[in-house]
Protein backbone atom coordinates (compact mmCIF):
# COMPACT_ATOMS: atom_id res chain seq x y z
CA UNK A 1 0.00 0.00 0.00
CA UNK A 2 2.89 2.30 -0.59
CA UNK A 3 1.23 4.96 -2.59
CA UNK A 4 3.22 8.02 -1.61
CA UNK A 5 5.99 9.38 -3.65
CA UNK A 6 8.99 11.30 -2.49
CA UNK A 7 7.80 14.50 -4.13
CA UNK A 8 5.10 15.88 -1.96
CA UNK A 9 2.66 17.29 -4.43
CA UNK A 10 2.28 14.02 -6.31
CA UNK A 11 -0.47 11.47 -5.84
CA UNK A 12 0.07 8.02 -7.24
CA UNK A 13 -2.61 5.46 -7.79
CA UNK A 14 -0.78 2.20 -7.28
CA UNK A 15 -1.78 -1.12 -8.74
CA UNK A 16 -2.54 -2.83 -5.47
CA UNK A 17 -5.86 -1.37 -4.34
CA UNK A 18 -8.10 -1.92 -7.28
CA UNK A 19 -11.34 -2.48 -5.44
CA UNK A 20 -11.80 0.59 -3.32
CA UNK A 21 -9.29 2.88 -4.90
CA UNK A 22 -11.51 5.84 -4.10
CA UNK A 23 -10.93 5.43 -0.36
CA UNK A 24 -7.19 5.18 -0.70
CA UNK A 25 -7.23 8.11 -3.07
CA UNK A 26 -9.21 10.23 -0.65
CA UNK A 27 -6.77 9.42 2.15
CA UNK A 28 -3.85 10.36 -0.05
CA UNK A 29 -5.39 13.66 -1.00
CA UNK A 30 -6.42 14.54 2.50
CA UNK A 31 -2.93 13.87 3.76
CA UNK A 32 -1.44 16.14 1.16
CA UNK A 33 -0.70 19.72 2.14
CA UNK A 34 -0.21 21.13 -1.31
CA UNK A 35 -2.99 22.82 -3.23
CA UNK A 36 -1.62 21.93 -6.66
CA UNK A 37 -1.50 18.21 -7.35
CA UNK A 38 0.03 16.02 -9.97
CA UNK A 39 -1.78 12.73 -10.33
CA UNK A 40 -0.15 9.56 -11.62
CA UNK A 41 -2.61 7.00 -12.89
CA UNK A 42 -0.08 4.40 -13.93
CA UNK A 43 -1.62 1.67 -16.02
CA UNK A 44 -5.14 2.36 -14.85
CA UNK A 45 -7.87 2.62 -17.40
CA UNK A 46 -10.18 5.28 -16.02
CA UNK A 47 -13.37 6.52 -17.61
CA UNK A 48 -14.63 10.10 -17.61
CA UNK A 49 -16.80 9.24 -14.62
CA UNK A 50 -13.82 8.12 -12.56
CA UNK A 51 -11.82 11.19 -13.44
CA UNK A 52 -14.80 13.42 -12.80
CA UNK A 53 -14.98 11.90 -9.37
CA UNK A 54 -11.32 12.75 -8.79
CA UNK A 55 -11.83 16.33 -10.00
CA UNK A 56 -14.86 16.83 -7.80
CA UNK A 57 -13.14 15.44 -4.75
CA UNK A 58 -10.18 17.74 -5.27
CA UNK A 59 -12.51 20.69 -5.76
CA UNK A 60 -14.18 20.01 -2.45
CA UNK A 61 -10.82 20.22 -0.71
CA UNK A 62 -9.89 23.34 -2.68
CA UNK A 63 -7.10 21.62 -4.54
CA UNK A 64 -6.40 21.88 -8.24
CA UNK A 65 -4.93 19.26 -10.51
CA UNK A 66 -1.99 20.63 -12.44
CA UNK A 67 -1.28 17.54 -14.50
CA UNK A 68 -2.37 13.95 -14.99
CA UNK A 69 0.17 11.32 -15.96
CA UNK A 70 -0.73 7.93 -17.31
CA UNK A 71 0.68 5.26 -19.53
CA UNK A 72 -2.81 4.32 -20.68
CA UNK A 73 -4.05 6.30 -23.71
CA UNK A 74 -7.66 5.72 -22.66
CA UNK A 75 -7.17 7.47 -19.34
CA UNK A 76 -5.32 10.29 -21.07
CA UNK A 77 -8.16 10.84 -23.50
CA UNK A 78 -10.72 10.74 -20.69
CA UNK A 79 -8.78 13.28 -18.66
CA UNK A 80 -8.12 15.64 -21.55
CA UNK A 81 -11.80 15.48 -22.47
CA UNK A 82 -12.50 16.90 -19.04
CA UNK A 83 -10.09 19.75 -19.62
CA UNK A 84 -7.08 18.57 -17.60
CA UNK A 85 -3.47 18.84 -18.64
CA UNK A 86 -2.24 15.38 -19.48
CA UNK A 87 0.99 13.64 -20.36
CA UNK A 88 1.47 10.16 -21.63
CA UNK A 89 4.35 8.48 -19.83
CA UNK A 90 6.20 5.36 -20.72
CA UNK A 91 6.01 2.19 -18.72
CA UNK A 92 8.86 -0.20 -19.08
CA UNK A 93 6.89 -2.98 -20.71
CA UNK A 94 5.37 -0.79 -23.38
CA UNK A 95 8.73 0.42 -24.46
CA UNK A 96 10.78 -1.36 -27.04
CA UNK A 97 14.37 -0.43 -27.04
CA UNK A 98 15.45 -0.48 -30.60
CA UNK A 99 19.02 0.39 -30.03
CA UNK A 100 20.57 -2.27 -27.90
CA UNK A 101 23.93 -0.55 -27.97
CA UNK A 102 22.86 2.02 -25.44
CA UNK A 103 24.81 1.18 -22.34
CA UNK A 104 23.48 2.08 -18.96
CA UNK A 105 20.70 4.53 -19.40
CA UNK A 106 22.61 7.08 -17.40
CA UNK A 107 22.01 9.76 -19.99
CA UNK A 108 18.40 10.28 -19.01
CA UNK A 109 15.41 8.70 -20.63
CA UNK A 110 15.36 11.06 -23.57
CA UNK A 111 18.35 9.39 -25.13
CA UNK A 112 16.47 6.13 -25.52
CA UNK A 113 14.75 5.42 -28.77
CA UNK A 114 11.31 4.19 -27.92
CA UNK A 115 7.95 3.61 -29.46
CA UNK A 116 4.44 3.84 -28.12
CA UNK A 117 1.58 1.67 -29.27
CA UNK A 118 -1.93 2.94 -29.34
CA UNK A 119 -4.75 0.67 -30.30
CA UNK A 120 -8.12 2.08 -31.29
CA UNK A 121 -9.45 4.70 -33.63
CA UNK A 122 -8.91 8.35 -32.79
CA UNK A 123 -12.20 10.22 -33.12
CA UNK A 124 -12.75 13.87 -33.98
CA UNK A 125 -11.49 16.17 -31.25
CA UNK A 126 -9.11 13.64 -29.72
CA UNK A 127 -5.44 14.45 -29.50
CA UNK A 128 -2.61 12.09 -28.76
CA UNK A 129 0.81 13.51 -28.10
CA UNK A 130 3.91 11.43 -27.41
CA UNK A 131 7.58 12.04 -26.80
CA UNK A 132 8.75 9.17 -29.00
CA UNK A 133 7.72 7.27 -32.10
CA UNK A 134 4.13 6.12 -32.25
CA UNK A 135 2.52 3.12 -33.88
CA UNK A 136 -1.20 3.61 -34.06
CA UNK A 137 -3.37 0.62 -34.82
CA UNK A 138 -6.66 2.06 -36.04
CA UNK A 139 -7.79 5.10 -37.97
CA UNK A 140 -7.16 8.76 -37.33
CA UNK A 141 -10.48 10.35 -38.20
CA UNK A 142 -10.94 13.87 -39.53
CA UNK A 143 -10.65 16.33 -36.65
CA UNK A 144 -8.25 14.18 -34.63
CA UNK A 145 -4.57 15.02 -34.16
CA UNK A 146 -1.49 12.82 -33.62
CA UNK A 147 1.76 14.43 -32.58
CA UNK A 148 5.06 12.76 -31.95
CA UNK A 149 8.64 13.84 -31.52
CA UNK A 150 9.63 10.94 -33.77
CA UNK A 151 7.97 9.00 -36.55
CA UNK A 152 4.27 8.33 -36.89
CA UNK A 153 3.13 4.99 -38.23
CA UNK A 154 -0.53 4.30 -38.71
CA UNK A 155 -1.89 0.85 -39.36
CA UNK A 156 -5.10 2.27 -40.75
CA UNK A 157 -6.23 5.45 -42.42
CA UNK A 158 -4.89 8.88 -41.69
CA UNK A 159 -7.74 11.31 -42.32
CA UNK A 160 -6.99 13.91 -39.65
CA UNK A 161 -3.81 15.81 -38.82
CA UNK A 162 -0.43 14.24 -38.12
CA UNK A 163 2.61 16.09 -36.85
CA UNK A 164 5.84 14.12 -36.84
CA UNK A 165 9.06 15.47 -35.39
CA UNK A 166 7.15 18.09 -33.47
CA UNK A 167 10.27 19.33 -31.76
CA UNK A 168 12.08 19.94 -35.01
CA UNK A 169 13.32 16.57 -36.22
CA UNK A 170 13.36 16.93 -40.02
CA UNK A 171 14.15 13.25 -40.50
CA UNK A 172 10.78 12.14 -39.16
CA UNK A 173 8.33 10.30 -41.36
CA UNK A 174 4.61 9.76 -41.43
CA UNK A 175 3.49 6.39 -42.73
CA UNK A 176 -0.06 5.14 -43.14
CA UNK A 177 -1.91 2.43 -45.01
CA UNK A 178 -4.04 5.19 -46.48
CA UNK A 179 -2.65 8.68 -46.40
CA UNK A 180 -5.45 11.20 -46.91
CA UNK A 181 -4.89 13.73 -44.17
CA UNK A 182 -6.42 17.15 -43.77
CA UNK A 183 -2.95 18.43 -43.05
CA UNK A 184 0.52 16.99 -42.68
CA UNK A 185 3.21 18.53 -40.51
CA UNK A 186 6.78 17.43 -40.23
CA UNK A 187 8.97 19.52 -37.95
CA UNK A 188 8.20 23.11 -39.01
CA UNK A 189 6.88 22.26 -42.48
CA UNK A 190 3.17 22.17 -43.16
CA UNK A 191 1.39 20.68 -46.17
CA UNK A 192 -2.20 20.22 -47.19
CA UNK A 193 -3.34 16.69 -47.79
CA UNK A 194 -3.60 15.35 -51.35
CA UNK A 195 -6.96 15.84 -53.04
CA UNK A 196 -6.92 12.81 -55.31
CA UNK A 197 -7.69 9.36 -53.99
CA UNK A 198 -4.64 7.23 -53.37
CA UNK A 199 -4.19 3.84 -54.96
CA UNK A 200 -5.64 1.16 -52.81
CA UNK A 201 -3.52 -1.38 -51.08
CA UNK A 202 -0.39 0.75 -51.10
CA UNK A 203 1.02 2.10 -47.89
CA UNK A 204 2.42 5.60 -48.30
CA UNK A 205 4.89 7.68 -46.42
CA UNK A 206 5.51 11.39 -46.17
CA UNK A 207 8.88 12.95 -45.49
CA UNK A 208 10.76 16.16 -46.11
CA UNK A 209 12.68 16.30 -49.37
CA UNK A 210 14.55 19.49 -50.01
CA UNK A 211 12.18 22.07 -48.69
CA UNK A 212 8.80 20.42 -49.06
CA UNK A 213 6.87 17.45 -47.77
CA UNK A 214 6.68 14.66 -50.34
CA UNK A 215 4.38 11.65 -50.33
CA UNK A 216 5.68 8.42 -51.81
CA UNK A 217 4.81 4.73 -51.67
CA UNK A 218 6.30 3.36 -48.48
CA UNK A 219 9.38 1.25 -48.74
CA UNK A 220 11.07 -1.11 -46.39
CA UNK A 221 14.55 -0.12 -45.50
Amino acid sequence: MNSFNSKKNQIILSQSFKKNWQKQFELDIKGNKYSQLEIFLGKWKLTCNDINYIINYCKRLNKTISNVFSSEPESIISASNLGLNTSLILEKNTRIERDLNIENSSNSKKAEVSIIFHQGTLHAGEIIEVESDILLIGDVNPGAIVRATGNIMIWGRLLGIAHAGKEGNHESKITALQLRPVQLRIADKIAKGPKEKPEEGLAEEAQIQGDVIVIKPARTR
Binding site: T47, C48, I77, S78, A124, G125, N141, P142, G143
Partner: peptide, 15 residues
Protein backbone atom coordinates in the same frame (compact mmCIF):
# COMPACT_ATOMS: atom_id res chain seq x y z
CA UNK B 1 -20.74 13.20 -39.38
CA UNK B 2 -17.84 15.10 -37.83
CA UNK B 3 -19.87 15.94 -34.72
CA UNK B 4 -21.13 12.37 -34.50
CA UNK B 5 -17.54 11.17 -34.58
CA UNK B 6 -16.65 13.47 -31.70
CA UNK B 7 -19.58 12.12 -29.71
CA UNK B 8 -18.53 8.52 -30.41
CA UNK B 9 -15.14 9.29 -28.91
CA UNK B 10 -16.78 10.73 -25.80
CA UNK B 11 -19.15 7.78 -25.46
CA UNK B 12 -16.16 5.42 -25.67
CA UNK B 13 -14.45 7.18 -22.78
CA UNK B 14 -17.64 6.81 -20.75
CA UNK B 15 -17.69 3.09 -21.45
Amino acid sequence: VRDADRVIGLLNTHG
